[in-house]
Amino acid sequence: MCLKPQHYEDILRDQPDIGWFEVHAENYLGAGGAPLHYLETIRERYPLSIHGVGLSIGSADGLDTNHLERVAKLVERFEPESFSEHLAWSTHDNHFYSDLLPVPYNQHTEDLVCNHIDQVQTRLRRPMLLENPANYLELNDTVTSESNFINNVVQRTGCGLLLDVNNVYVSARNCHYNALDYMKSLPLQSVGEIHLAGHAVDDSIPDEALLIDAHDRAVSTAVWKLYDQLIQLTGARPTLIEWDTNIPAWQVLLNEMVKADLLLNQPPARLAHATEN
């Protein structure tokens, strides 16, 4: 479950039976105060996953070592089960763009991404998980497929995969390919975590709906279906519901988690059978 300030008190009061919580590293880099206090209190009761949104793994001008150092201190302090970041860039020329920007897939960027992941894993002294992006367009500088690129990066760096099923669905719809085929071409044995989220649909142009990875609503039926298909392939994996804007009441989030649990706790035979395929 994602941990949001709006829900700190609900969680501490109800102490819900939840596997783990995930936080964005960049929201907990202050010196003290309420965010770190609540994170510490919740960490005493639950496992934690730390998700970076600002390391800019796909950056052209090297990682911000000062920022990496702050993230590393946070990871050392809270000892999360996992640390993950995005296959994306957000900083260039000392300017933070506050969005996950797309990386073209070619040898040059593969080397960049691998070097940066090595740097992160060396500093954090642990493997990280890399999250697949949500795509809206195809870049001219791309010469290989996203799944090829990810396979190479996972093989070269030993990092794991954070498979965001909503991103898969959004990208497949926007760029016109088959979502399940795409997932099957990924190194699924390396999936350490799964993300689910809701997306917005811009249907202002007839027959050309554009899906936007908005994290502002419930997970769509199509994404639930794709998730079900994924865990037939991977077996049960830690799964997170992301909801970052228009954050609902705690109970609404819990209901989403119950749905994921139902799918994860299917008869083992069905999952085992699927894993053999």
Binding site: E26, N27, L29, G30, V53, G54, L55, S56, D64, H67, R70, S90, T91, N94, H95, F96, Y97, S98
Partner: peptide, 8 residues
């Protein structure tokens, strides 16, 4: 523009 990713 922001120079770093910590929005606070």
């Amino acid at each position: 523009p922001p120079t770093g990713p910590v929005m606070a």
